[in-house]
Nucleic acid binder design. Sequence first.
DNA 1: ATCCTACGATGGACTTCGTCCAAGTCAAGA
DNA 2: TCTTGACTTGGACGAAGTCCATCGTAGGAT
Lengths: 136, 136
Amino acid sequence: MSDLLRRLRGRGWRMTSQRRVVAEVLAGDHVHLTADEVHLRAAARLPEISRATVYNTLGELVALGEVVEVSTVGRAKRYDPNARNPHQHLVCSGCGTVRDVHPGGDAIGDLPEEERFGFAVGSVEITYRGLCPACA
Amino acid sequence: MSDLLRRLRGRGWRMTSQRRVVAEVLAGDHVHLTADEVHLRAAARLPEISRATVYNTLGELVALGEVVEVSTVGRAKRYDPNARNPHQHLVCSGCGTVRDVHPGGDAIGDLPEEERFGFAVGSVEITYRGLCPACA
DNA sequence: ATCCTACGATGGACTTCGTCCAAGTCAAGA
DNA sequence: TCTTGACTTGGACGAAGTCCATCGTAGGAT
Ligand SMILES: [Mn+2]
Ligand SMILES: [Mn+2]
Ligand SMILES: [Zn+2]
Ligand SMILES: [Zn+2]
C-alpha cells in the first residue's frame, strides 16, 4: 500500500526500487512470509534484488513498527505487515498454515502482579496450535 | 530426576551414560537451555559426548512429552523440562532472561468459535515480553 | 539539467543452528 | 560370555541469517 510508502518517506527513507518492491510484496493483511519467500516474490518483479537487501529492509520495517516478526519453533521467522491491527495467530501443526485471530479476554491483564517479577510487561504473543480441517 | 530415568526405562530406552547425563542436566524446573548449553553442561561431566547425541536425545525427550520446545524469534530453540506443569513464559527483551509464569484466565476458551476456522485447537503458547528490573 | 555525496544495494564470505550419515561401540537379553 | 541391534560419534552438509568492502544512485544543492 502506498500508505506505507508515504509514511516511510516521511521518516526520511530514500525511496529505492528495491524498497518499493519489498513493500509491495508485503501489501495486504493475512500475509505471513519468510524472508526467502519475500525475496522470491520480490525477485519476480526486480530480478537483481539481493537477499541482503531483503533482510535489511525487513529489519528496518520491523524497527519502524510497520512489520511484526512472528516467532516459530525452529523454522524461519515470518514477517507480518498487519502491525496496526493487534492480533494473534492460529497455526496448523500439520501443514504450518497461519491464520490471524482475535481472542477475547485481556491476556496481559491475566498475568497476576506477583508473576511479573518486576518486569515492565509491554506485549504478549499468543500462538494457538491445532490441526486445520484439511490436515485433520 | 531419576523419576524421569525410570519412565524412560519403562518406555524401552536403552540407558546410556550420554542419555543419563543429558537427563541430569535438564533436572529441575525453571530450566530453559539451548541445545548448545545442554551440550556444554553435559560435556563437563562426560567430555566425549557429541552434539549429535544431544540433539538426538532432546528430540526424543520432546517426542515423549518429557520436554517442551519453547519457540523464539530467530534465536536457538530452548528446551524446557517443566513439561508436567503447564505454564507460559515471560521474556526480557533486553537480556533474554526467561521466567515461568501462570496467567489466570482461559486462553483457549478466549478464542471465539468463529475465529477457529474449523481447526481442532489443542494448545496455546503465550509469551509475555518486557524489560526485567536489571534491564529497565 | 547537472553535480555531489551520503545512503543504500550487492554478492560473497562467514556464523549459527541444526540435520544426516557411515562407521564404530556397547547395553542388555539369551 | 556372546550377539546384535540400538546408540554414539565426528564430520560433512544444509538452512537461515549476518557482515563487509565495494559499487551505484536518490535526491538535495547549484
Ligand atoms: Mn498475522
Ligand atoms: Mn518454562
Ligand atoms: Zn494443516
Ligand atoms: Zn533483562
